Computed example of a mutant assay.
Amino acid sequence: MSRWEPGSRARLQAAALDLFLAQGYAATTTAAIAERAGVTDRTFYRHFKDKSEVLFGDEGRLEQVLVEAVTATTGSTTDALRAALSALARDFQPRRADLVRRARVVESVPDLAERELWKLRTWSRALMRVLLERDGDKLATHAQVEVALALFRTAFQSWTRDDDPPALDDLIQQAYAAAGLSPGMDTRSHLTP
Rank of each mutant, 00 (worst) to 15 (best):
R61V: 00
Q93G: 15
E5Y: 05
W123L: 08
P183Q: 15
A27R: 12
R36A: 14
E68P: 00
T192P: 02
E114W: 14
Q173I: 11
A22I: 07
Y176F: 14
W123M: 01
R61Y: 12
W118C: 08
E146W: 08
A31H: 07
P110N: 00
E116S: 15
E63I: 03
D169Q: 13
P94H: 13
K119Y: 04
R125C: 00
F48H: 06
L19K: 03
G38T: 10
R188S: 15
T154G: 08
R90F: 05
T71R: 07
R153D: 13
G136D: 10
E107R: 14
A175Q: 06
L168Y: 08
D50V: 06
W118N: 03
A69W: 05
M128N: 00
A22K: 12
V65R: 04
L55A: 05
Q23L: 09
M1A: 05
T154P: 00
R9D: 02
R9A: 14
A178F: 10
D111N: 08
D186Q: 09
L117R: 13
Q157E: 09
F44W: 05
F92M: 10
R9K: 15
A150V: 00
R36M: 05
R102L: 10
L181V: 09
S86L: 11
V145N: 00
F48V: 10
M1C: 07
R9W: 05
E146M: 13
F56K: 02
V54A: 14
R46N: 12
L151G: 04
V106K: 09
V65A: 07
A27S: 13
G136Y: 03
L19M: 06
A15S: 09
R42H: 14
A26V: 15
T141S: 02
F44R: 00
V147S: 07
H190I: 07
L85G: 08
S52L: 09
V105P: 00
F92T: 02
G180E: 02
Y176W: 12
A178H: 09
D50A: 13
V65H: 01
D50K: 06
T73W: 00
T187E: 13
R115H: 13
L131P: 04
G60C: 07
D137N: 12
D79I: 01
A140Q: 04
G24E: 03
D162G: 04
D135E: 14
I172C: 06
L151A: 13
S124H: 04
A69C: 11
